[in-house]
Nucleic acid binder design. Structure first.
Length: 954
RNA sequence: GCCCGGGUGGUGGAAUGGUAGACACGCAGGACUUAAAAUCCUGUUGCCAUGCGGCAGUACGGGUUCAAGUCCCGUCCCGGGCACCA
């Protein structure tokens, strides 16, 4: 019988389906194990070879756990709301629901080819109303709760209202936007509108003014990555920051718990670090500086209150509320100009700018609370509104950025810390003795911090405060293709939750998905839907991508429940995710949001665990090669001109822009001399007709309007391209489809090859160079069962030899250990070694093959299933038991010891395994080669590690 | 700019602080064949020697250690993230 993967795959795919091999029950006496993949966004370019990397790893692990006796939940679904479908709709008029459904069908087809053990009956789609009903429901719970810091949990908003009615805000310690202070009678006399606004200060889902990128020419709000260099990526139109009233989620209420929760989960150290840096807990002081003109106070946060006598100026964020109020008439124009500039800058730009600091003087002064000195107040882009209090005291002597700012604007620098006794210390180190600092003089920094904190508190000018870098999550999007908010506004603009009975609130039908005028969501066009009853209107923004993905793993436990997001029974059986597999690009976005939602649901008693994911494995990104050609930014006589990469690099790269081209057209792509020839240039102008009249120039000549004019004798061009490694994406024209690989080599080969590429957590560019090795391995495995010449079965029932069992069990040991540590590439190597050795021993014994087939089954499920049945088994190999290592087959009689002299290997000697340390030392010293190397030198020391090595020190 | 990774032959990579380069790809030579494909065998880090061997070598510069790809300090380069891509 010949090895034909496509036939085997077809056969077993339908057999698995007919026998419901991958269906998982919520009723089982077996221990549970939940293996989850980060679900994909179904993009228009289809699944690329990077997606399955993690899916294959998790599938191997899920199958392995199942063969070890667990009831394994291993589901898949789609993160189906998103911007690309909406943009596609704007361009083509195709409804996002339609294109999304098409893309999902394509993804499903592609996933099915790879042989995953998903239980498809549990599939979820976040854009399905039966799913987003519960996303909306959870949002309403957030809206209807506040966070009680004393109880350290979320509580119903009714309880807060009851407290306000009775006692006002006095005894409340809540997570808030700003500290409020009112009595019960003040509360009672508030209008409905005022009460609503007050409650917004406490709700976990609330409205506040935040900024969006607004592009007047495109008439739309842009995402950060749609803005490049201060203009829109599409079209290059100007953009500006526009304030809007938007929904936010009070994730900051959970900052501390998100931080301490990290200690209880099994994530990599780097992942935990990224998250804790993101949360950014710091201790310091909140302080109030009186304004010189008596118009109020300036609130700042500082981690270094000890440096206050070095504070020679204050900096407030340009968006700070006080700016308007304190700016003097003389400075008004300068401030206005500066604000206009800042409006065009992204936060990233503002934080990254290091060469050139910028800022403007408001004309106002604050007073140092300790000595009454006047301190000028500036605004500068490096201070962000939502960071701390949006204002800092600048201490140029002790902070790099403040120092640059002071130098640029000739502001005084007062040394306040003597670091002379700490020669290696940097400017940021909290080391040294205080000088020029009044009552702090002579103190070590760490004592000075404590002393000044006490003084601040006793003077009543501030207090100790823990600050978090984490900011509340902006939850509104001015888009169509997302979950509608289940919120309606009355005549007064007061927000009301829809009753649960009206969920899901479905998206209204639209023909045109372009944004509505005035930075409004496209939903604003659905006027009947918006103005559903006189005087009332619906919220027209929709929820962001992370809404649906923050809780989807819970829905898989009970996917078709229409009474609850999942039943308590299902939640209590599956508990949490045992293994979560996905990319590090989600480190701080998705993972933080879903941990936050989970903790909230835990507070409500709706989920049994406080953390959703017990263990996290990060798969590296499979990158693509991006091939660019250089275009001259200025057109030549109205025509686009492209030049060879080498030429662009030599002649001022800044005059050129990079245009990515389809990698298929590029010869030797990814290599040093990747290039286009005349044939491929013709393909490019056919592919991008806007360049049909462009000029292409290289050393060999000029290509224009389909004609090549050589400079010398060349008959073809070698138009060099620039290769870089980066994400696989449709916009970079470098997507590689797994289907082609599966069609050519088979799914098992594709699965094993992706694993064989290297450690799963490492990023690597895709190439198929080594795939023949894996393909050969599978064929060799097959040939242990069938005679290559006559196709007859070779399987026999003779007793395995000691040697054969040693080979098999060495492999079992290696593979079981390596699966546990997700080292799948070395598993594949171990399989290869085992098969090579069995072949050289001509071993086709049933006792050996039966175990080997089970061992390889998680990696190559199709081939294993076929061979398993060839060994006369009736049920699926998925249900068989994973082989156990028998150590007694692995016992060694002798060990090959490397013998080193001063750490350099000089000899290799085979010695009995049971030799003692002393005997080993003696045997090593007696070796001829060792004697030769020692030649007269005295042996100082001999280090013997039994079973490992011997090192002689002279 | 900040945070987190990574850098080992021609290529993908292996290596609980203990034999650097397992396992593959590619390449070279050979066997089988009329030939090719497929398959099999041998070799394959560089340099010198071309037998035995020797020296150097894991991005670069230092350090710790009997012993460093692995640990520590500094530098360079590449990738991911940085709050509206998902």
């Amino acid at each position: 019988m010949e090895y034909i993967p496509s036939e085997i795959e077809k056969k077993w795919k339908s057999w698995w389906e007919d026998n419901q091999v991958y269906k998982v029950s919520n009723d089982s006496t077996k221990p549970k194990y939940y293996v989850l993949d980060m679900f994909p966004y179904p993009s228009g370019s289809g699944l690329h070879v990077g997606h399955p990397l993690g899916y294959i790893g998790s599938d191997i692990f899920a199958r392995y756990k199942r063969m070890n006796g667990y009831n394994v939940l291993h589901p898949m679904g789609y993160d189906a709301f998103g911007l690309p479908a909406e943009q596609y709709a704007i361009q083509t008029g195709v409804h996002p629901a339609k294109s999304t459904a098409d893309n999902i069908a394509r993804y499903r087809e592609q996933l099915d080819k790879i042989g995953f053990s998903f239980d498809w009956s549990r599939q979820v789609e976040t854009s399905d109303p039966s799913y987003y009903k519960w996303t909306q429901w959870i949002f309403l719970q957030l809206f209807n709760h506040w966070y009680d810091n004393k109880a350290a949990k979320a509580r119903p908003i009714e309880e807060l209202i009851a407290i306000f009615e009775k006692d006002g805000s006095a005894d409340i310690d809540a997570a808030v936007s700003e500290a409020l202070d009112f009595s019960a009678s003040q509360w009672q006399s508030m209008t409905a509108k005022e009460k609503d606004e007050t409650l917004m200060n406490y709700r976990l889902a609330y409205r506040k003014t935040t900024y969006v990128w607004w592009c007047e020419d495109l008439g739309t709000v842009l995402a950060n990555d749609e803005v490049k260099d201060g203009v829109s990526e599409r079209g290059g139109y100007p953009v500006e920051r526009k304030p809007m009233l938007q929904w936010s989620l009070r994730i900051t209420a959970y900052a501390d718990r998100l931080l301490t929760g990290l200690d209880t989960v099994d994530f990599s150290d780097s992942m935990k670090k990224m998250q804790s840096n993101w949360i950014g807990k710091s201790q310091g002081a909140q302080m109030f500086f009186e304004l010189e003109n008596g118009a109020g106070q300036l609130e700042i946060f500082t981690t270094r209150p000890d440096t206050i006598f070095g504070a020679t100026f204050m900096v407030v964020a340009p968006e700070h509320d006080l700016v308007k109020q304190i700016t003097t008439p003389e400075q008004a124009q300068a401030i206005a100009d500066y604000l206009a500039y800042v409006n065009t800058r992204s936060e990233r730009d503002r934080m990254s700018e290091t060469k050139e600091v910028s800022g403007e003087f408001t004309g106002a002064y604050a007073l140092n609370p300790f000595n009454g000195e006047k301190i000028p107040i500036w605004i500068a882009e490096y201070v962000l509104k939502d960071y701390g209090t949006g204002a800092i005291m600048a201490v140029p002597a002790d902070d790099e950025r403040d120092m640059r700012f002071a130098k640029k604007f000739n502001l005084p620098i007062v040394e306040i810390i003597d670091k002379s006794m700490h020669p290696g210390a940097t400017i940021e180190d909290k080391l040294g003795k205080m000088i020029n600092s009044d009552f702090l003089n002579g103190m070590e920094v760490r004592y000075a911090i404590e002393a000044v904190l006490e003084r601040i508190e006793s003077m009543g000018i501030g207090h100790r405060k823990i600050n978090f870098k984490l900011r509340d999550a902006i939850y509104s999007r001015q888009r169509y293709w997302g979950e509608p908010f289940p919120i309606v506004y009355d005549e007064n603009g007061v927000a009301h939750a829809l009753p649960e009975s009206e969920l899901p609130l479905e998206l209204p039908e639209l023909e045109d998905f372009k944004p509505a005028s005035g930075a409004k969501s496209p939903l604003a066009r659905a006027e009947d839907w918006v103005n559903f009853k006189p005087g009332w209107r619906r919220e027209t923004d929709t929820m962001p991508g992370f809404a649906g993905s923050s809780w989807y793993f819970l829905r898989y436990m009970d996917p078709s429940n229409d009474k609850e997001f999942a039943s308590q029974k299902a939640l209590n059986y599956w508990q949490d995710v045992d293994l979560y597999v996905g990319g590090t690009e989600h480190a701080v976005g998705h993972l933080m949001y879903s941990r936050f939602w989970h903790k909230f649901l835990y507070d409500k008693g709706l989920v049994p665990t406080e953390e959703p994911y017990k263990k996290l494995m990060n798969q590296g990104m499979i990158q693509g090669v991006i091939e660019n050609i250089y275009i001259l930014k200025e057109k030549v006589n109205g025509k686009s001109k492209f030049v060879c990469a080498k030429f662009a690099k030599q002649n001022g790269i800044e005059d050129f822009a990079k245009i990515p081209v389809l990698v298929d057209y590029v010869a030797d792509y990814g290599l040093q001399d990747s290039h286009l020839n005349l044939e491929s240039l013709r393909q490019i102008i056919a592919w991008r007709p806007e360049y049909s009249e462009a000029i292409f120039e290289s050393n060999e000549g000029i290509f224009k309007n389909g004609h090549f004019t050589p400079k010398g004798d060349d008959t073809d061009m070698k138009f060099e391209t620039n290769s870089e490694v980066g994400k696989m994406s449709k916009s970079k024209y470098n997507v590689i489809n797994p289907d082609d690989v599966v069609d050519r080599y088979g799914a098992d080969c594709f699965r094993m090859y992706e694993m064989f590429l290297g450690p799963i957590e490492q990023a690597k560019p895709w190439d198929t160079k080594g795939i023949n090795g894996v393909s050969g391995f599978l064929r060799k495995l097959w040939m242990l069962f069938y005679d290559e010449q006559n196709g007859k079965s070779l399987v026999n029932d003779s007793e395995p030899t000691k040697e054969e069992l040693k080979v098999l069990h060495t492999c079992i040991k290696k593979v079981s250990e390596d699966i546990e540590r997700f080292s799948f590439n070395t598993c594949v190597s171990a399989f290869m070694i085992c098969v090579n050795e069995l072949r050289s021993m001509n071993c086709s014994k049933r006792a050996v093959l039966d175990e080997f087939v089970r061992l390889v089954a998680p990696f190559a499920p199709f081939t294993a299933e076929e061979l398993w049945h060839q060994l006369n088994h009736e049920s699926s190999v998925c249900e068989a038991e994973f082989p156990k290592v028998n150590e007694s087959y692995l016992v060694q009689d002798s060990i090959a010891y490397p013998v080193s002299i001063n750490g350099k290997k000089r000899d290799l000697v085979e010695l009995p395994a049971n030799m003692s340390k002393e005997e080993l030392e003696k045997a090593a010293l007696e070796l001829d080669k060792v004697q030769k190397w020692l030649e007269g030198q005295a042996v100082k020391k001999v280090i013997v590690v039994p079973g490992r090595m011997i090192n002689i020190v002279v």
